[in-house]
Structures are given as C-alpha cells and as structure tokens.
C-alpha cells in the first residue's frame, strides 16, 4: 500500500449553482477526502459546498456507444420551442 484511493471532487461555487467537477484527490477515506478537497480546491474562495465521490464508484458511458446514446436525439426537433410557428402578433407564448 503506497498511495491512497482516488476521489473525484465537485464544488458548488455559490448558492443557486450546481456542483461542478473540478478534479480529484487521493485520500484514505471519505472524511479526509473532503478535507483534502477543501485544502486543494477551495483555497481562493472557490466554493460554498463540496462533494467527493470515490472515483471507482463513477459509472461512465462508453464513447464508442455515443452514436446510439446521443445521436437519436438529434432529429427530435419537436422537443424544441423553435420548431413551432406562432404568428408574431400573438404575445407571451
């Protein structure tokens, strides 16, 4: 055993914003992972809240499947408001 496991770090920059991935740290456990995240990624008031997640617990989609995962959404234009024609004289819609 020479190095600790890896944790992914997410920071909420301020109230109203979602947590955003900023990087990772090594730590022996969840509590110290939070401390390490604080001491590494919020030294300049970058955040008001932190998440750490064991890197091994992240399930990622496979880029090789990006075609089947994401391309089918491309032609579903009816999901977007710009697909619909509304006369200019009609307001607030």
């Amino acid at each position: 055993m020479s190095d600790w496991p890896l944790w992914e770090v997410f920071v909420r920059a301020k109230g109203g914003l979602a947590h955003r991935h900023v990087g990772s740290v090594h730590a022996p456990d969840a509590e110290l992972a939070l401390r390490h995240a604080r001491d590494t990624y919020t030294r300049r008031q970058e955040g008001v809240s932190l998440w750490v997640v064991a890197s091994a617990a992240i399930i990622a989609s496979d880029p090789d499947q990006s075609g089947e995962l994401f391309e089918p959404a491309a032609d579903k234009v009816y999901r977007h408001p710009t697909f619909y024609d509304i006369p200019d004289v009609v307001k607030h819609i």
Binding site: M1, S2, D3, W4, P28, D29, L32
Partner: peptide
C-alpha cells in the same frame, strides 16, 4: 499513508 488506510 499505511496507518490511515489501516484505520479505514
């Protein structure tokens, strides 16, 4: 590093 891992 070993001690912290052992504690966990």
């Amino acid at each position: 590093r070993e001690a912290a891992a052992a504690h966990e």
